[in-house]
Write a protein that binds this DNA or RNA. Structure first.
Lengths: 220, 220
DNA sequence: CCGCTGTTAATGTGATCACACATGTGTGAT
DNA sequence: ATCACACATGTGTGATCACATTAACAGCGG
Protein backbone atom coordinates (compact mmCIF):
# COMPACT_ATOMS: atom_id res chain seq x y z
CA UNK A 1 0.00 0.00 0.00
CA UNK A 2 2.90 2.30 0.57
CA UNK A 3 6.58 2.20 -0.26
CA UNK A 4 7.29 -0.18 2.57
CA UNK A 5 4.79 -2.85 1.70
CA UNK A 6 5.77 -2.83 -1.94
CA UNK A 7 7.73 -5.76 -3.17
CA UNK A 8 11.13 -6.10 -1.65
CA UNK A 9 13.23 -3.39 -3.18
CA UNK A 10 16.33 -5.03 -4.55
CA UNK A 11 18.98 -2.51 -3.63
CA UNK A 12 22.20 -2.82 -5.59
CA UNK A 13 25.33 -2.38 -3.53
CA UNK A 14 26.23 1.09 -4.71
CA UNK A 15 27.72 4.08 -3.00
CA UNK A 16 24.31 5.74 -3.06
CA UNK A 17 22.59 2.96 -1.15
CA UNK A 18 25.43 2.64 1.33
CA UNK A 19 25.28 6.36 1.99
CA UNK A 20 21.52 6.19 2.29
CA UNK A 21 21.68 3.45 4.88
CA UNK A 22 24.41 5.24 6.79
CA UNK A 23 22.42 8.48 6.96
CA UNK A 24 19.33 6.52 7.90
CA UNK A 25 21.06 4.99 10.89
CA UNK A 26 22.54 8.30 11.93
CA UNK A 27 19.11 9.89 11.89
CA UNK A 28 17.65 7.09 13.99
CA UNK A 29 20.54 7.39 16.40
CA UNK A 30 19.86 11.09 16.82
CA UNK A 31 22.96 12.47 15.13
CA UNK A 32 20.87 15.29 13.72
CA UNK A 33 18.63 17.89 15.23
CA UNK A 34 15.46 19.38 13.75
CA UNK A 35 16.36 22.33 11.57
CA UNK A 36 19.83 21.02 10.71
CA UNK A 37 20.77 21.76 7.12
CA UNK A 38 21.90 18.66 5.24
CA UNK A 39 24.22 19.68 2.45
CA UNK A 40 25.00 17.45 -0.49
CA UNK A 41 28.61 18.49 -0.77
CA UNK A 42 29.24 18.32 2.96
CA UNK A 43 27.84 14.81 3.22
CA UNK A 44 29.84 13.80 0.17
CA UNK A 45 33.01 15.16 1.76
CA UNK A 46 32.26 13.41 5.05
CA UNK A 47 32.04 10.05 3.35
CA UNK A 48 34.81 10.66 0.85
CA UNK A 49 32.65 10.27 -2.21
CA UNK A 50 31.60 12.61 -4.96
CA UNK A 51 28.44 14.65 -4.75
CA UNK A 52 26.36 12.23 -6.78
CA UNK A 53 25.84 9.47 -4.20
CA UNK A 54 25.17 12.02 -1.48
CA UNK A 55 22.69 13.68 -3.77
CA UNK A 56 20.75 10.49 -4.42
CA UNK A 57 20.87 9.38 -0.79
CA UNK A 58 19.55 12.72 0.41
CA UNK A 59 16.82 12.86 -2.20
CA UNK A 60 15.87 9.35 -1.17
CA UNK A 61 15.50 10.47 2.42
CA UNK A 62 13.40 13.39 1.23
CA UNK A 63 10.97 11.06 -0.52
CA UNK A 64 10.82 9.02 2.66
CA UNK A 65 9.83 12.11 4.59
CA UNK A 66 12.95 11.87 6.74
CA UNK A 67 14.19 15.16 5.29
CA UNK A 68 12.27 18.06 3.79
CA UNK A 69 12.88 21.04 1.58
CA UNK A 70 13.09 24.32 3.42
CA UNK A 71 11.64 27.48 1.97
CA UNK A 72 14.57 28.10 -0.30
CA UNK A 73 15.36 24.61 -1.60
CA UNK A 74 17.77 23.86 1.18
CA UNK A 75 17.30 20.42 2.67
CA UNK A 76 16.73 20.31 6.39
CA UNK A 77 15.80 17.89 9.15
CA UNK A 78 12.09 18.41 9.79
CA UNK A 79 10.66 19.46 13.10
CA UNK A 80 8.02 17.25 14.63
CA UNK A 81 5.09 19.02 16.19
CA UNK A 82 4.22 17.90 19.68
CA UNK A 83 1.03 16.33 18.40
CA UNK A 84 2.85 14.51 15.64
CA UNK A 85 5.57 13.38 18.02
CA UNK A 86 2.90 11.87 20.21
CA UNK A 87 1.36 10.14 17.19
CA UNK A 88 4.71 8.63 16.34
CA UNK A 89 5.22 7.36 19.87
CA UNK A 90 1.74 5.89 19.90
CA UNK A 91 2.41 4.09 16.64
CA UNK A 92 5.77 2.95 17.98
CA UNK A 93 4.17 1.38 21.04
CA UNK A 94 1.70 -0.54 18.93
CA UNK A 95 4.05 -1.69 16.18
CA UNK A 96 7.19 -2.35 18.19
CA UNK A 97 5.45 -4.56 20.73
CA UNK A 98 4.06 -6.49 17.79
CA UNK A 99 7.48 -6.75 16.18
CA UNK A 100 9.00 -7.79 19.49
CA UNK A 101 6.40 -10.53 19.86
CA UNK A 102 7.34 -11.85 16.42
CA UNK A 103 11.02 -11.62 17.31
CA UNK A 104 10.75 -13.41 20.65
CA UNK A 105 11.06 -16.97 19.42
CA UNK A 106 14.14 -16.13 17.35
CA UNK A 107 16.12 -14.55 20.17
CA UNK A 108 19.03 -16.69 21.34
CA UNK A 109 21.12 -16.54 24.48
CA UNK A 110 23.84 -14.93 22.38
CA UNK A 111 21.38 -12.20 21.52
CA UNK A 112 20.61 -11.69 25.19
CA UNK A 113 24.33 -11.41 25.97
CA UNK A 114 24.68 -8.85 23.20
CA UNK A 115 21.73 -6.91 24.57
CA UNK A 116 23.29 -6.86 28.03
CA UNK A 117 26.54 -5.64 26.51
CA UNK A 118 24.76 -2.83 24.71
CA UNK A 119 22.93 -1.98 27.90
CA UNK A 120 26.16 -1.57 29.85
CA UNK A 121 27.39 0.74 27.09
CA UNK A 122 24.22 2.74 27.53
CA UNK A 123 24.79 2.97 31.26
CA UNK A 124 28.31 4.22 30.68
CA UNK A 125 27.03 6.79 28.22
CA UNK A 126 24.47 8.01 30.72
CA UNK A 127 27.10 8.19 33.45
CA UNK A 128 29.26 10.36 31.22
CA UNK A 129 26.27 12.41 30.09
CA UNK A 130 27.07 11.31 26.57
CA UNK A 131 23.72 11.92 24.95
CA UNK A 132 24.70 10.71 21.48
CA UNK A 133 26.19 7.58 22.96
CA UNK A 134 22.97 6.94 24.81
CA UNK A 135 20.79 7.40 21.76
CA UNK A 136 23.06 5.25 19.64
CA UNK A 137 22.95 2.51 22.22
CA UNK A 138 19.21 2.81 22.60
CA UNK A 139 18.73 2.44 18.84
CA UNK A 140 20.98 -0.58 18.67
CA UNK A 141 19.32 -2.18 21.68
CA UNK A 142 15.85 -1.92 20.20
CA UNK A 143 16.75 -2.87 16.66
CA UNK A 144 18.88 -5.79 17.72
CA UNK A 145 15.60 -7.17 18.99
CA UNK A 146 13.42 -6.01 16.12
CA UNK A 147 15.68 -7.42 13.44
CA UNK A 148 15.10 -10.87 14.88
CA UNK A 149 11.46 -10.59 13.80
CA UNK A 150 12.52 -11.09 10.19
CA UNK A 151 9.55 -8.98 9.19
CA UNK A 152 9.96 -7.38 5.79
CA UNK A 153 6.78 -5.41 6.30
CA UNK A 154 6.68 -4.05 9.83
CA UNK A 155 10.41 -3.50 10.25
CA UNK A 156 10.76 -0.85 7.53
CA UNK A 157 7.73 0.94 8.93
CA UNK A 158 9.24 0.97 12.41
CA UNK A 159 12.47 2.26 10.90
CA UNK A 160 10.62 5.10 9.20
CA UNK A 161 9.08 5.97 12.57
CA UNK A 162 12.51 6.19 14.19
CA UNK A 163 13.61 8.23 11.21
CA UNK A 164 11.13 10.88 12.22
CA UNK A 165 11.53 10.26 15.92
CA UNK A 166 15.31 10.47 16.21
CA UNK A 167 16.00 14.15 15.61
CA UNK A 168 13.16 15.41 17.77
CA UNK A 169 14.06 13.01 20.55
CA UNK A 170 17.58 14.30 20.50
CA UNK A 171 16.30 17.86 20.62
CA UNK A 172 14.17 17.14 23.63
CA UNK A 173 16.98 15.34 25.43
CA UNK A 174 19.49 18.10 24.82
CA UNK A 175 17.04 20.61 26.20
CA UNK A 176 16.08 18.63 29.27
CA UNK A 177 19.15 16.58 29.92
CA UNK A 178 19.75 12.89 29.56
CA UNK A 179 18.88 12.42 33.22
CA UNK A 180 15.22 12.44 32.32
CA UNK A 181 15.61 9.27 30.31
CA UNK A 182 17.95 7.46 32.66
CA UNK A 183 15.30 5.09 33.90
CA UNK A 184 14.66 2.90 30.90
CA UNK A 185 13.26 -0.60 30.98
CA UNK A 186 16.13 -2.36 29.23
CA UNK A 187 16.99 -4.44 32.29
CA UNK A 188 13.40 -5.60 32.52
CA UNK A 189 13.60 -6.54 28.86
CA UNK A 190 16.71 -8.68 29.21
CA UNK A 191 15.47 -10.25 32.43
CA UNK A 192 12.17 -11.21 30.83
CA UNK A 193 14.08 -12.68 27.89
CA UNK A 194 16.27 -14.71 30.26
CA UNK A 195 13.20 -16.09 31.96
CA UNK A 196 11.61 -16.78 28.59
CA UNK A 197 8.60 -14.75 29.67
CA UNK A 198 7.18 -13.34 26.44
CA UNK A 199 4.42 -11.35 28.09
CA UNK A 200 6.77 -9.61 30.50
CA UNK A 201 9.11 -9.03 27.58
CA UNK A 202 6.51 -7.31 25.42
CA UNK A 203 5.26 -5.40 28.44
CA UNK A 204 8.77 -4.12 29.14
CA UNK A 205 9.17 -2.96 25.54
CA UNK A 206 5.85 -1.15 25.73
CA UNK A 207 6.83 0.38 29.05
CA UNK A 208 10.12 1.60 27.62
CA UNK A 209 8.29 3.43 24.85
CA UNK A 210 5.58 4.62 27.17
CA UNK A 211 8.28 6.18 29.30
CA UNK A 212 9.08 8.39 26.31
CA UNK A 213 5.46 9.48 26.18
CA UNK A 214 5.55 10.41 29.84
CA UNK A 215 8.67 12.39 29.13
CA UNK A 216 6.70 14.31 26.55
CA UNK A 217 4.01 15.21 29.05
CA UNK A 218 6.65 16.12 31.56
CA UNK A 219 8.20 18.56 29.09
CA UNK A 220 5.10 20.44 28.05
CA UNK B 1 3.65 7.00 9.51
CA UNK B 2 4.84 6.48 5.98
CA UNK B 3 6.04 8.71 3.23
CA UNK B 4 2.54 9.79 2.38
CA UNK B 5 1.46 10.93 5.79
CA UNK B 6 4.63 12.87 6.34
CA UNK B 7 4.35 16.60 6.31
CA UNK B 8 3.46 18.06 2.98
CA UNK B 9 6.50 17.71 0.82
CA UNK B 10 7.27 21.09 -0.59
CA UNK B 11 8.30 20.24 -4.10
CA UNK B 12 10.32 22.93 -5.85
CA UNK B 13 9.36 23.48 -9.45
CA UNK B 14 12.32 21.78 -11.03
CA UNK B 15 12.71 19.65 -14.11
CA UNK B 16 13.08 16.60 -11.87
CA UNK B 17 9.74 17.07 -10.15
CA UNK B 18 7.97 17.89 -13.40
CA UNK B 19 9.35 14.74 -14.94
CA UNK B 20 8.41 12.76 -11.88
CA UNK B 21 4.84 13.95 -12.01
CA UNK B 22 4.62 13.31 -15.72
CA UNK B 23 5.85 9.76 -15.38
CA UNK B 24 3.54 9.22 -12.43
CA UNK B 25 0.51 10.19 -14.46
CA UNK B 26 1.62 8.09 -17.40
CA UNK B 27 1.95 5.07 -15.16
CA UNK B 28 -1.51 5.60 -13.68
CA UNK B 29 -2.93 6.02 -17.17
CA UNK B 30 -1.41 2.72 -18.22
CA UNK B 31 1.19 3.99 -20.64
CA UNK B 32 3.56 1.27 -19.47
CA UNK B 33 3.31 -2.48 -19.25
CA UNK B 34 4.84 -4.75 -16.61
CA UNK B 35 8.37 -5.68 -17.59
CA UNK B 36 8.95 -2.52 -19.61
CA UNK B 37 12.50 -1.24 -19.22
CA UNK B 38 12.61 2.40 -18.18
CA UNK B 39 15.87 3.92 -19.34
CA UNK B 40 17.27 7.13 -17.94
CA UNK B 41 18.65 8.34 -21.22
CA UNK B 42 15.56 7.40 -23.19
CA UNK B 43 13.26 9.22 -20.80
CA UNK B 44 15.59 12.20 -20.84
CA UNK B 45 15.51 12.26 -24.64
CA UNK B 46 11.71 11.95 -24.67
CA UNK B 47 11.32 15.01 -22.51
CA UNK B 48 14.17 16.96 -24.05
CA UNK B 49 16.18 17.27 -20.85
CA UNK B 50 19.53 15.98 -19.76
CA UNK B 51 19.92 12.67 -17.99
CA UNK B 52 19.98 14.18 -14.53
CA UNK B 53 16.29 15.05 -14.09
CA UNK B 54 15.26 11.72 -15.63
CA UNK B 55 17.62 10.01 -13.26
CA UNK B 56 16.14 11.64 -10.18
CA UNK B 57 12.57 11.16 -11.32
CA UNK B 58 13.12 7.47 -12.00
CA UNK B 59 14.94 6.90 -8.72
CA UNK B 60 12.06 8.67 -7.01
CA UNK B 61 9.60 6.26 -8.57
CA UNK B 62 11.81 3.37 -7.48
CA UNK B 63 11.67 4.49 -3.86
CA UNK B 64 7.90 4.76 -4.23
CA UNK B 65 7.78 1.16 -5.37
CA UNK B 66 6.34 2.18 -8.73
CA UNK B 67 9.48 0.92 -10.47
CA UNK B 68 11.96 -1.76 -9.40
CA UNK B 69 15.48 -2.87 -10.18
CA UNK B 70 15.68 -5.90 -12.40
CA UNK B 71 18.33 -8.56 -11.91
CA UNK B 72 21.06 -6.59 -13.60
CA UNK B 73 20.40 -3.08 -12.32
CA UNK B 74 18.07 -2.23 -15.16
CA UNK B 75 14.96 -0.42 -14.03
CA UNK B 76 11.69 -2.03 -15.02
CA UNK B 77 7.97 -1.72 -14.44
CA UNK B 78 7.11 -4.35 -11.82
CA UNK B 79 4.69 -7.15 -12.43
CA UNK B 80 1.82 -7.52 -9.99
CA UNK B 81 1.03 -11.03 -8.91
CA UNK B 82 -2.61 -11.99 -9.14
CA UNK B 83 -2.82 -12.07 -5.37
CA UNK B 84 -1.21 -8.67 -5.06
CA UNK B 85 -3.39 -7.23 -7.80
CA UNK B 86 -6.40 -8.39 -5.85
CA UNK B 87 -5.02 -6.79 -2.69
CA UNK B 88 -4.62 -3.50 -4.51
CA UNK B 89 -8.15 -3.63 -5.85
CA UNK B 90 -9.48 -4.44 -2.39
CA UNK B 91 -7.60 -1.48 -0.92
CA UNK B 92 -8.84 0.69 -3.78
CA UNK B 93 -12.45 -0.18 -3.05
CA UNK B 94 -12.06 0.72 0.59
CA UNK B 95 -10.05 3.89 0.21
CA UNK B 96 -11.61 5.34 -2.92
CA UNK B 97 -15.15 5.09 -1.61
CA UNK B 98 -13.91 6.86 1.49
CA UNK B 99 -12.21 9.54 -0.59
CA UNK B 100 -15.32 9.90 -2.75
CA UNK B 101 -17.42 10.39 0.35
CA UNK B 102 -15.13 13.18 1.48
CA UNK B 103 -15.22 14.69 -2.00
CA UNK B 104 -18.99 14.61 -2.38
CA UNK B 105 -19.81 17.91 -0.73
CA UNK B 106 -17.19 19.75 -2.77
CA UNK B 107 -18.41 18.58 -6.17
CA UNK B 108 -20.11 21.34 -8.16
CA UNK B 109 -22.34 21.17 -11.20
CA UNK B 110 -19.34 22.25 -13.25
CA UNK B 111 -17.54 19.18 -12.00
CA UNK B 112 -20.44 16.99 -13.03
CA UNK B 113 -20.38 18.53 -16.50
CA UNK B 114 -16.68 17.85 -16.72
CA UNK B 115 -17.21 14.26 -15.60
CA UNK B 116 -19.84 13.78 -18.30
CA UNK B 117 -17.49 15.23 -20.87
CA UNK B 118 -14.72 12.83 -19.82
CA UNK B 119 -17.20 9.98 -19.92
CA UNK B 120 -18.15 10.70 -23.53
CA UNK B 121 -14.44 10.71 -24.36
CA UNK B 122 -14.19 7.31 -22.72
CA UNK B 123 -17.12 6.03 -24.78
CA UNK B 124 -15.45 7.25 -27.96
CA UNK B 125 -12.22 5.55 -26.95
CA UNK B 126 -14.04 2.30 -26.33
CA UNK B 127 -15.83 2.57 -29.67
CA UNK B 128 -12.49 2.97 -31.42
CA UNK B 129 -10.90 0.21 -29.33
CA UNK B 130 -8.44 2.83 -28.13
CA UNK B 131 -7.25 1.15 -24.97
CA UNK B 132 -4.85 3.88 -23.91
CA UNK B 133 -7.53 6.49 -24.49
CA UNK B 134 -9.89 4.51 -22.31
CA UNK B 135 -7.42 4.15 -19.48
CA UNK B 136 -6.44 7.80 -19.65
CA UNK B 137 -10.08 8.79 -19.48
CA UNK B 138 -10.77 6.39 -16.66
CA UNK B 139 -7.90 7.82 -14.64
CA UNK B 140 -9.04 11.37 -15.19
CA UNK B 141 -12.63 10.52 -14.37
CA UNK B 142 -11.77 9.00 -11.04
CA UNK B 143 -9.19 11.52 -10.00
CA UNK B 144 -11.32 14.50 -10.99
CA UNK B 145 -13.59 13.23 -8.25
CA UNK B 146 -10.90 12.26 -5.77
CA UNK B 147 -9.08 15.57 -6.00
CA UNK B 148 -12.20 17.27 -4.70
CA UNK B 149 -11.69 15.47 -1.39
CA UNK B 150 -8.77 17.81 -0.63
CA UNK B 151 -7.27 14.97 1.38
CA UNK B 152 -3.52 15.28 1.75
CA UNK B 153 -3.36 11.88 3.37
CA UNK B 154 -5.61 9.48 1.50
CA UNK B 155 -5.13 10.96 -1.96
CA UNK B 156 -1.40 10.19 -2.21
CA UNK B 157 -2.06 6.67 -1.00
CA UNK B 158 -4.72 6.17 -3.64
CA UNK B 159 -2.31 7.54 -6.21
CA UNK B 160 0.34 5.05 -5.14
CA UNK B 161 -2.22 2.29 -5.56
CA UNK B 162 -2.96 3.38 -9.12
CA UNK B 163 0.77 3.59 -9.67
CA UNK B 164 0.97 -0.13 -9.06
CA UNK B 165 -2.38 -0.85 -10.63
CA UNK B 166 -1.96 0.94 -13.95
CA UNK B 167 0.61 -1.22 -15.74
CA UNK B 168 -0.98 -4.53 -14.78
CA UNK B 169 -4.42 -3.26 -15.68
CA UNK B 170 -3.17 -2.30 -19.07
CA UNK B 171 -1.59 -5.70 -19.48
CA UNK B 172 -4.81 -7.47 -18.65
CA UNK B 173 -6.84 -5.27 -20.96
CA UNK B 174 -4.48 -5.73 -23.89
CA UNK B 175 -4.66 -9.46 -23.43
CA UNK B 176 -8.41 -9.67 -23.08
CA UNK B 177 -9.60 -6.70 -25.05
CA UNK B 178 -11.15 -3.47 -23.93
CA UNK B 179 -14.58 -4.98 -24.47
CA UNK B 180 -14.34 -6.65 -21.09
CA UNK B 181 -14.30 -3.31 -19.33
CA UNK B 182 -16.89 -1.57 -21.47
CA UNK B 183 -19.58 -1.73 -18.82
CA UNK B 184 -18.34 0.71 -16.23
CA UNK B 185 -20.46 2.52 -13.71
CA UNK B 186 -19.52 6.07 -14.67
CA UNK B 187 -23.04 6.91 -15.77
CA UNK B 188 -24.39 5.74 -12.43
CA UNK B 189 -21.79 7.95 -10.76
CA UNK B 190 -22.76 11.11 -12.60
CA UNK B 191 -26.47 10.39 -12.23
CA UNK B 192 -26.12 9.90 -8.49
CA UNK B 193 -24.18 13.16 -8.31
CA UNK B 194 -26.90 14.98 -10.24
CA UNK B 195 -29.52 13.68 -7.83
CA UNK B 196 -27.29 14.61 -4.88
CA UNK B 197 -27.54 11.04 -3.64
CA UNK B 198 -24.31 10.43 -1.76
CA UNK B 199 -25.03 6.80 -0.96
CA UNK B 200 -25.80 5.89 -4.55
CA UNK B 201 -22.70 7.84 -5.56
CA UNK B 202 -20.36 5.93 -3.23
CA UNK B 203 -22.08 2.70 -4.17
CA UNK B 204 -21.46 3.38 -7.87
CA UNK B 205 -17.79 4.10 -7.22
CA UNK B 206 -17.47 0.86 -5.29
CA UNK B 207 -19.28 -1.01 -8.04
CA UNK B 208 -16.96 0.43 -10.66
CA UNK B 209 -13.95 -0.89 -8.79
CA UNK B 210 -15.66 -4.16 -7.96
CA UNK B 211 -16.21 -4.64 -11.66
CA UNK B 212 -12.45 -4.72 -12.00
CA UNK B 213 -12.28 -7.49 -9.42
CA UNK B 214 -14.84 -9.51 -11.32
CA UNK B 215 -12.73 -9.00 -14.41
CA UNK B 216 -9.83 -10.52 -12.52
CA UNK B 217 -11.83 -13.63 -11.67
CA UNK B 218 -13.05 -13.82 -15.22
CA UNK B 219 -9.49 -13.83 -16.48
CA UNK B 220 -8.05 -16.51 -14.25
C1' DC C 1 24.77 53.29 16.57
C1' DC C 2 21.62 51.73 13.02
C1' DG C 3 20.37 50.43 8.40
C1' DC C 4 21.26 49.67 3.72
C1' DT C 5 24.17 47.59 0.15
C1' DG C 6 27.52 45.16 -2.44
C1' DT C 7 30.29 41.22 -2.14
C1' DT C 8 31.37 36.55 -1.04
C1' DA C 9 30.50 31.85 0.05
C1' DA C 10 27.53 28.02 -0.20
C1' DT C 11 23.57 25.76 -1.89
C1' DG C 12 20.66 22.72 -5.22
C1' DT C 13 20.11 21.95 -10.11
C1' DG C 14 21.33 20.57 -14.64
C1' DA C 15 24.68 18.98 -18.13
C1' DT C 16 28.29 16.19 -19.69
C1' DC C 17 31.78 12.77 -19.58
C1' DA C 18 34.24 8.33 -18.17
C1' DC C 19 33.73 3.76 -16.43
C1' DA C 20 32.17 -1.00 -15.41
C1' DC C 21 29.00 -4.24 -16.60
C1' DA C 22 25.43 -6.77 -19.09
C1' DT C 23 23.50 -8.11 -23.37
C1' DG C 24 23.05 -9.11 -27.98
C1' DT C 25 25.17 -9.90 -32.32
C1' DG C 26 28.10 -10.96 -35.82
C1' DT C 27 32.16 -13.30 -37.24
C1' DG C 28 35.39 -16.79 -37.41
C1' DA C 29 37.15 -21.44 -36.32
C1' DT C 30 36.14 -26.13 -35.82
C1' DA D 1 26.22 -26.32 -39.33
C1' DT D 2 27.48 -25.18 -34.65
C1' DC D 3 29.88 -23.26 -31.08
C1' DA D 4 32.97 -19.75 -29.04
C1' DC D 5 34.88 -15.47 -28.77
C1' DA D 6 35.23 -10.62 -29.73
C1' DC D 7 33.05 -6.43 -30.55
C1' DA D 8 29.37 -3.00 -30.49
C1' DT D 9 25.59 -1.19 -28.00
C1' DG D 10 22.99 0.25 -24.12
C1' DT D 11 22.66 0.42 -19.20
C1' DG D 12 23.23 2.59 -14.35
C1' DT D 13 26.81 4.74 -11.64
C1' DG D 14 30.05 8.13 -10.26
C1' DA D 15 32.73 12.39 -11.06
C1' DT D 16 33.15 17.02 -12.37
C1' DC D 17 31.83 21.40 -14.03
C1' DA D 18 28.75 25.62 -14.95
C1' DC D 19 24.88 28.26 -13.45
C1' DA D 20 21.14 30.63 -10.86
C1' DT D 21 19.62 31.55 -6.38
C1' DT D 22 20.14 32.57 -1.67
C1' DA D 23 21.91 33.39 2.84
C1' DA D 24 25.48 35.68 5.45
C1' DC D 25 28.56 39.19 6.29
C1' DA D 26 31.54 42.96 6.01
C1' DG D 27 31.69 47.86 4.75
C1' DC D 28 29.88 52.21 4.05
C1' DG D 29 26.68 56.09 4.58
C1' DG D 30 23.23 57.95 7.36
Amino acid sequence: MDTHTSQDAFSPNTASTRLHRALRVRMCEGDFSPGDVISIRRVAAEYGTSAMPAREAIRWLVTEGALVFSDSRKIIVPELSRERFHEVLFARKSLETQVSRQAFTHITTDDIDELRRIDTEIDEAIEQSDLLGYMRGNYRFHFHIYRRSHSRVLLPIVESLWLQYGPSMRYICTRWGASTIADDYHREVTQALSRGDIEAFCHAIAADIEQGMQLLHQVE
